[in-house]
Amino acid sequence: MRVLTVINDPQIEKAVILCFQLYFPEAALVSAAEGARAIEALVMQSPDVVVLDLVPPDMDGFDLLSRLRALSDVPVIVVTPRGEELERVRGLELGADDYIYEPFSSAELVARIRAVLRRTVLRTGHPSPPTTVPQLALDRDRGFTVRGQQVPLSPVEHRLLRRLARSAGQVVSHSQLMADLWGEDYLGSSSRLRVHIHRLRLKLGDSLHNPRLIITVPGQGYRLNLPGG
């Protein structure tokens, strides 16, 4: 396993590196304190996971996250002292797979690393066929087409829509969706899921007040509707 750490605080970086040395001794660690070096390392080193703080000295942390995500589907764990919900939502929308807040224990970091790695789709090198429902096609490159028009998706949105499409016409529970997206050990609230459903509806051109494609089933979950369903 190859790990890219992008951490400006020497003490936090030391704690993260020590965690990997203790629990993942086989891991090859690549450090880049600056955003520009992180982008270069991502391209050149192809890490399996990125641990990122949001205060690189040379660029905005959210901008760096967005640029990393545009280049790769690698799992990204954000290490941050910021606890505001809007900050978390922004990071998740830009492609972060998980957040961990300072101060954190080695046990928590290890659990989150293992969770994001479990959720990573292993690439076989062979293109997988698109997932389709009428007028909607979802490809393996984080995009989909609606009535022939290509629309980009974030990694979480892609996984969410693919999961709903696999059970098109059937209700998928809140708990099942959250487990599929963030692992069986996810303990967060369903508000995170609602944010991504909201974003998907916007991108699909679905009505937010009277949706016809992604249907909310009160007390149960969501259903990707089929025409006439």
Results as ranks from 00 to 15, higher is better:
67 R>M: 14
77 I>G: 04
80 T>I: 12
92 L>N: 02
72 S>L: 01
63 D>L: 12
60 D>A: 10
85 E>W: 04
90 R>H: 13
67 R>V: 04
70 A>E: 12
59 M>Y: 03
66 S>E: 10
68 L>P: 13
85 E>G: 00
80 T>Q: 15
61 G>R: 04
91 G>L: 02
86 L>K: 11
92 L>M: 15
95 G>F: 04
90 R>P: 03
60 D>C: 03
64 L>I: 11
89 V>P: 05
62 F>G: 01
92 L>Y: 00
86 L>D: 09
55 V>E: 05
59 M>C: 15
73 D>R: 02
95 G>H: 13
64 L>F: 06
86 L>S: 14
75 P>I: 06
90 R>N: 08
89 V>I: 15
65 L>V: 01
60 D>N: 15
68 L>M: 12
73 D>T: 05
64 L>D: 14
55 V>F: 00
58 D>G: 14
91 G>Y: 00
88 R>M: 13
79 V>D: 06
76 V>L: 05
69 R>G: 00
74 V>E: 07
70 A>G: 09
61 G>N: 11
77 I>P: 05
94 L>V: 02
77 I>M: 03
56 P>Y: 05
59 M>A: 11
67 R>D: 14
71 L>N: 12
55 V>W: 01
62 F>K: 01
92 L>H: 02
68 L>S: 07
76 V>R: 01
84 E>Y: 04
70 A>Q: 11
77 I>H: 01
55 V>I: 02
91 G>W: 00
64 L>E: 12
83 G>H: 07
86 L>I: 06
75 P>R: 11
71 L>C: 11
68 L>G: 11
62 F>D: 03
82 R>N: 14
78 V>L: 08
56 P>A: 02
82 R>A: 15
84 E>D: 08
94 L>Q: 08
95 G>E: 13
91 G>Q: 07
85 E>K: 08
58 D>H: 09
90 R>F: 00
66 S>K: 13
83 G>K: 11
80 T>N: 10
69 R>C: 01
59 M>T: 14
90 R>Y: 02
65 L>T: 03
90 R>E: 09
65 L>E: 13
71 L>P: 01
69 R>T: 08
81 P>G: 03
60 D>S: 13
62 F>M: 12
73 D>N: 04
89 V>W: 11
65 L>Q: 10
68 L>N: 10
61 G>E: 14
60 D>P: 06
91 G>S: 10
56 P>H: 03
80 T>E: 14
81 P>F: 00
73 D>V: 05
57 P>M: 13
